[in-house]
């Protein structure tokens, strides 16, 4: 976390937030169990419900416990996470897709539209990635320019307070 979030007031605020998030996580777990016990759902529905709750819990952990909420300005973390999730999602998706595409008896022929879409996806993915990279690179240069005077200013104020 950057310097501006070191003040005692902010830490107190954070601690309150941490208890809140802890409560949310416990509640999420309970809800998951209760739904499982109380309702009989098909696999698809229970997967969607269960994983959605998990996703909500996970985003609370990342945002608050891991202070991503206050770190996301930090371009490198964002970049890493974006990259990871692109690759993770890509891997999951493609592996799933590969499995679904295996010809089996009784399964219908694959329509022509899918290979075409697949090829388009192959074009769009790297293009969008290139665009993203350019954007991030130019952004980080801007951050570098901004950052230097800011920290100087902070140091000055701190000295004043100490006096």
């Amino acid at each position: 976390m950057s310097d501006s979030h070191d003040s005692p007031n902010f830490i107190q605020y954070l601690i309150k937030l941490f208890y809140l998030v802890g409560g949310v996580l416990v509640a999420g777990t309970l809800i998951t169990v209760i739904i499982d016990v109380a309702f009989k759902m098909s696999l698809a529905v229970s997967a969607i419900v269960g994983l959605s709750i998990a996703l909500v819990k996970a985003s609370f952990v990342v945002a608050i416990f891991m202070h991503y909420k206050w770190d996301k300005k930090l371009i490198m973390i964002t970049w890493t996470m974006i990259l990871t999730f692109i690759f993770f999602a890509g891997m999951m998706g493609l592996i799933m897709w590969a499995e679904g595409d295996i010809p089996r008896w009784g399964r219908e022929e694959v329509p022509v539209v899918w290979p075409v879409l697949a090829s388009l996806l192959g074009l769009i993915l790297p293009a969008s990635f290139a665009a993203l990279t350019i954007k991030i690179l130019s952004q980080s240069a801007a951050v570098a320019k901004e950052a230097a005077p800011k920290t100087k200013a902070k140091r000055v104020t701190r000295k004043k307070k100490k006096d």
Binding site: M76, T80, M81, A147
Partner: peptide, 22 residues
Amino acid sequence: RPDTGLYNGKLGIWLFLASEVM
């Protein structure tokens, strides 16, 4: 570091977590 906004350790642990995600 001012322009990346991170100290080494934090950057390192986030990168490590990226590999753990994978």
